[in-house]
Design a protein around this nucleic acid. Sequence first.
DNA 1: ATAGGGTTAATA
DNA 2: TATTAACCCTAT
Length: 301
Amino acid sequence: MGAPKQKWTSEEEEALRRGVLKHGAGKWRTIQKDPEFSPVLSSRSNIDLKDKWRNLSFSASGLGSRDKIKVLRIKAPSSSTSPSSQSLLLPPSDKVTEASPLADSEKSSQDGKIPKYSSMIIEALYEMRDPNGSDVDAICNYIEQRHEVQANFRRLLTTKLRRLTAAKKIEKIDRAYKITESYAAKASIAMKSLSPKKDLAKPLKASQNAGLFAATSPALDAAAAAAMKVADAEAKAHLANEHMMEVERIFKLSEETESLLTLASEIYERCSRGEVLTVLQVAQNGFEFERNSSASSTVHA
DNA sequence: ATAGGGTTAATA
DNA sequence: TATTAACCCTAT
């Protein structure tokens, strides 16, 4: 007797999403056993979680079935034979830059916003949402688990934390850090101003393709993560989730293949369909999006 | 235990 | 018949 295919409920789906946020994609067993999710996911195996996440990821990316993507699996003629992937995402690779002359309004922002890692820190703090704050170890661990990171990351992290604290974006209580109310509020306002007309009530399917990137791309900015803390509107949260998944997926792709070609192919695909290319900025700056949404530029093929 | 290719049940 | 989502199999 063949099992009649047990379709995933939205509760299960939500549990999975949160599980991935908490433990990271790939820790299926951990998620499944987590007392926070095990009640909901009791009838699902770790493999089920993995498969479901795969489905979610691909459908959210706008590109339909998963087998279409495997064409992109081209190994770059990289001489780096060691499987220890490390160099690709970390340093803002200048190869990507030269291939794509983006209007980089980098640095010198009057606000003194710190590029790169700061957004990861905000993201980490938001995701962990510890009311008592999170200590350096927790933050470090969280980020290291999700992003490839430099060898001396721990040291940089300390520095960034100090700067963010000075900038009043996070606060240090005893040894724990957390996002400040003022920054969260500010981010919330920013969030509202750029989450416009899009009808969020529509089921997931509607958020495919261009719309995802064109209108709301800056939503992934560190500010957005903080914004969700305050403006906990589910719709926004879901939308943001889509972004997280998309970014994560692209990161994974490039990690796995260790190939810029793959990324390039992905980008080319999108460009050829006339999409606005915020993805590129993702590739360059990690979770840091341009603060001027108008700065996002298209890429010539 | 996980990733990824492959298979089958449901459905448009 | 083509797509999709849930499920299965196997190498790592």
